[in-house]
Write a protein that binds this DNA or RNA. Structure first.
Length: 561
RNA sequence: GCCCCUGUAGCUCAGCUGGAUAGAGCGCUGCCCUCCUAAGGCAGAUGUCAGACGUUCGAAUCGUCUCAGGGGCACCA
């Protein structure tokens, strides 16, 4: 619809050029917007105000010339000039309700563009180290990353979802030592508890399972415990597998899946880390100082150079990160999107600097990052501190238990990643009936309920029956709803471009609101048969859009509630 | 000290690649079920869009500065 209007305006501009009102170089491409106020029509453009100065006449006068130059068409029923020079368009009834046919025809594909082939994109998200259960922050990353992946898939990208973790570093050693201490009967209060040991309750569970010689299977590994509390290697391997299994269970409960689990250790094993250091050195981007090897990252916009190899010999953490991303590049991803917590912000410059230093033709702004701000958890009116070591700890699975998967996902994706998020557990629990997600789901369930009734009355009824009588949809509520439904494809592509899934949540709340208004104002089943069928078609189109939208958020669309 | 994010209704947040009287949910006030799910609708109250200056025909939106909150600036990961 927007495209059609744009094209009409372009034709109008061309004829003004032909008439000498404008010169060729002065033409700009028209911008169409959706007015907030319905009295301003269905669509509006500020084109006249933008071009008035160049055309040498007042905006309102130029607007009139533009309207006069519009080709004949069946889309627009009325135009008006308003305010300082806006041109408002009102759609004809037929072009407005035509979207219903489109939606019913395309069904589960409406709003998506899976057919366009945009290329390969890798989305890395969650990437939690296996040192504890997933917490609320991981949950936000999981919800946003998964939703991004769904959006990109829906808009034609070939998406690869990846989870990266370190299975062999210092943190894992601390984990193993903590479990070993537990297995030997120590508790975190004990003086001999490891210095940087983990203190959560799960360490005790883990130690029990180890002593019972349990075998665990995670998505990417299987390990059997031998129960020997002196065998640190076995403890380490078992602990990693046990926690990975826990994380898998949480992710599954959250509806999140990955195509690949990538191990940091594989970069060392395959020599990729060493090779990256070697190449950076050959390319002249490193220097030795104070016994350490430095990357001259200031050449690439960093505010200071960074140590790559410590005096003691080990690499700093960003070196394998560079190797990992070079690995991604070699796998052929033109686009890589990393969804991480904002506390990883400092890595962006370093990783990109390292990649630039490889002189491998990697673009400047590659990879892309989506960083989410902190989640503050409120319980009993007070902030719950997230500390693995202290063990007071809101896990993702706690949250799912308390407020449900759909509400958790919705809450965590419905706000912009750049905004800090306050998750008030008491509020989410005590008022779970009034969660916005239910408002949207209820609209979906309501349509399903009406459709069940319609089938009871007439077993042969199908939603497309109403396409014959769409011209009977004349109520303001029906036309407003149809217009909103027609915006869905645009909302999806914009959300995908901006990498902002919360646009979908906001849009769906609007759709649900307009449907509820329509539902309360007009009976569907009791109307005259052609009218009833048309309204049912509109309702079914609404159901489809809500279902397609919720699918992008990983939230279910129930048929009854 | 430097960098990033944020500051909009009592609360939680949209709107931010500039547009016409600033929105939603919760909460608050009053209505609407002999009727397809009232987990709903309708009507109403609520704002120094943190502040100042600037750019513009037009600024919550862009720029500079100030203030406030959060995060980051390791030879930790």
């Amino acid at each position: 619809m927007k495209e059609a209007l744009t094209s009409l305006l372009e034709q109008a501009l061309q004829s003004l050029v032909a008439a000498g009102t404008l010169s060729d170089g002065e033409v700009v491409s028209p911008k169409i917007e959706h007015p907030k106020d319905p009295s301003h029509g269905d669509f509006a453009t500020n084109l006249a105000m933008v071009l008035a100065k160049r055309a040498g006449m007042p905006p309102r006068e130029f607007a009139q010339r533009l309207i006069d130059a519009l080709p004949d068409n069946s889309l627009i029923e009325g135009t008006e000039i308003a305010g300082p020079g806006f041109i408002n368009f009102r759609l004809s009834q037929a072009s407005n309700t035509g979207v219903i046919r489109e939606i019913l025809t395309q069904g589960a594909e409406y709003g998506y563009q899976r057919h366009t082939r945009r290329g390969k994109v890798q989305v890395e998200f969650v990437s939690a180290n296996p040192t504890g259960p997933l917490h609320v922050g991981h949950g936000r990353g999981a919800a946003i990353g998964d939703s991004l992946s769904r959006l990109l898939t829906a808009t034609g990208w070939d998406v690869h979802r990846e989870f990266y973790y370190n299975d062999a570093g210092q943190q894992i050693s601390n984990l193993a030592l903590s479990v070993q201490a537990r297995a030997k009967g120590l508790t975190p209060e004990n003086a001999n508890w490891p210095d940087d040991g983990y203190r959560g309750e799960y360490i005790a569970d883990l130690a029990d399972a180890f002593l019972k010689k349990e075998a665990v299977a995670a998505a990417d590994r299987e390990v059997a415990a031998n129960g020997d509390s002196d065998d640190l290697d076995n403890i380490r391997a078992f602990a990693v597998a046990w926690l990975r299994r826990e994380q898998d269970a949480d992710l599954k409960a959250f509806g999140v899946q990955f195509d690949e689990y990538f191990l940091e250790s594989s970069l060392y094993d395959g020599g990729e880390v060493d090779r990256v250091v070697e190449e950076l050195t050959i390319n002249g981007h490193t220097y030795e100082q104070d016994g350490a090897l430095w990357l001259r990252s200031t050449e690439f916009g960093d505010d200071k150079d960074r140590v790559m190899r410590k005096r003691e010999g080990g690499y700093t953490y960003f070196v394998p990160d560079v190797a990992y991303h070079r690995n991604k590049w070699r796998r052929g991803y033109q686009r890589v999107i990393n969804e991480q917590g904002a506390d990883h912000h400092s890595t962006i410059t370093r990783v990109r600097a390292g990649l630039q230093g490889l002189d491998a033709g990697i673009p400047d702004g590659w990879p892309e990052y989506v960083l989410h701000q902190m989640v503050t958890v409120m319980r009993d009116g007070a902030e719950v501190k997230l500390s693995k070591r202290a063990g007071s700890y809101v896990t993702l699975s706690d949250l799912i238990d308390w407020v449900g998967r759909d509400a958790t996902r919705f809450f965590l994706t419905a706000r912009a990643a750049t905004s800090q998020l306050t998750f008030d557990i008491d509020l989410a629990r005590s008022q779970s009936n009034e969660n916005p997600v239910y408002y949207i789901q209820y609209a979906h369930a309501r349509v399903c309920s009406v459709e069940r009734k319609a089938r009871q009355q007439d077993p042969d009824w199908t939603p497309t029956d109403g396409l014959e009588s769409l011209d009977t949809l004349i109520e303001p509520e029906a036309l407003a709803l149809a217009l909103t439904l027609s915006r869905f494809p645009e909302v999806v592509s914009t959300a995908a471009e901006r990498l902002e899934p919360h646009d979908i949540a906001n849009y769906l709340r609007g759709v649900a609101g307009e449907f509820h208004s329509f539902y309360n104002a007009h009976k569907m089943l009791d109307a005259e048969p052609p009218v009833a069928r048309a309204r049912l078609a509109l309702a079914d189109a609404t159901r489809q859009v809500i279902a397609n939208g919720l699918a992008l958020l990983g939230v279910s669309a129930p048929e009854s509630m």
